[in-house]
Simulated assay, not measured.
Amino acid sequence: MTFNTSPSSVEEPNLRNWLGEEAAKLGFDQLRITDTYLGSANERLQEWLAEGRHGAMEYMERHAELRSDPQLLVPGTVRVICVSMSYLLPEGDFDREWQRLEEPTQAVVSLYARGRDYHKVLRQRLQEFATLVENKIGRFGYRVFTDSAPLMEVELARKAGLGWRGKHTLLLNRNYGSMFFLGEILVDMPLPLDEEQEEHCGTCQACMDVCPTQAITAPYQLDARRCISYLTIENPGEIPVEFRRAMGNRIYGCDDCQLICPWNKFAKRTLLSDFAERHGLGHATLLQLWSWSESDFDKRHEGSAIRRIGYLRWRRNLAVAMGNALASPELPESEKDLIRQALQDALPSAQPLVAEHIEWAISAAHS
């Protein structure tokens, strides 16, 4: 990138306020600015990778050098404009979410994935925002990102002051909790920097205690290989048997560490229709989703983050949840019979990955 704006336009006293106001008009809750220096965060990343805690996410290791310095990713970058966008809906009911986890026939999808794909939403609005800035101050070098490049997004957001790092490793904010997406614009403008926030977790470790697989191995330490979000989304192969029971009826992601967090109880809710629930994913049953053909899956998840995992992983996850339902002592035999029959009917034509999980599920009630 090359710096084309005039110094006077960047130093304009009202520019910083204008940036925040325009970002808010586009649906962003916060906008903060940081530089590109990541300090000891790169060392911590290298240690995490060396321990193999990234599991099958080999792209984390492949692009580790780029993650260490945004200037390597986009030469000429001197500042990172960081934004957040909440996805917690007004009707979101945490008590109901906990209740559904106790209902074996329900299919639990992480809250963030029930609406439109956040990659599309944020990227489009970030681009609109960058265009507005260009119209105001003139041409400048920039690139927009949202969970789509080798960037240490959470660390940059923490440095910018969007929040502090919680013990579950997610970003936390006193007004917005942790249920928000992050986006970045790497720019060649020397904009004024914002200050970091103080941490407010104190002695609380509710997120660590509630994790079904104990994936938060210590404060601020996550072993992705144990995390249900990783296992159901990023993991391309078999789900380790040792974690299948703990998955319960979670078929895409896991919100437990966020649902339990006190800061999310007071979080402001989004009014953006983009994140409104689609296809009844907030109350769908396992059998309803199991009945979807591959074409149903592709069509109904069009424009959704869920479509990225593909039909096989979707079926794999459902099979595990159905096996857990069969093992539930609370579920009536009549409902178990329906689940068992649906699994048996699918087994002859199932791909090997799904077939292994179906076989496990059918035998789950006797193990």
Rank of each mutant, 00 (worst) to 15 (best):
F3E: 14
N4L: 15
V10Q: 11
E11S: 15
E12Q: 14
L15E: 07
R16N: 09
N17K: 14
W18F: 10
L26Y: 09
G27A: 10
D29T: 08
T34Y: 09
L38Y: 07
G39R: 05
L49W: 01
A50K: 14
E51A: 13
H54I: 04
G55W: 03
A56K: 11
R67I: 03
P70M: 00
P70Q: 00
Q71S: 00
G76I: 03
I81F: 03
L88D: 00
F94G: 08
F94L: 08
D95K: 04
E97W: 02
W98G: 00
P104G: 02
S110H: 00
L111K: 12
Y112W: 04
K120E: 13
K120D: 14
L122W: 01
Q124N: 05
L126A: 02
E128V: 00
A130Q: 10
T131Q: 14
G141L: 07
V144R: 05
F145Q: 07
S148F: 03
A149D: 00
P150S: 07
E153I: 08
L156A: 05
A160V: 12
G161Q: 12
L162C: 05
G163M: 06
R165V: 11
G166R: 10
P192L: 11
E195I: 14
E196L: 15
E196M: 15
A224M: 13
R225W: 08
S229Q: 02
L231W: 09
I233T: 10
P240A: 11
E242R: 15
G253W: 06
A267F: 03
S273M: 05
A276H: 08
R278W: 02
G282T: 08
L287D: 04
S293T: 15
R300P: 02
I306T: 07
W314Q: 07
L318R: 08
V320L: 07
V320T: 04
A321S: 08
R340F: 09
A342Y: 07
A342M: 06
A346D: 13
Q351H: 12
H357D: 06
I358K: 01
E359D: 06
I362V: 08
S367W: 15
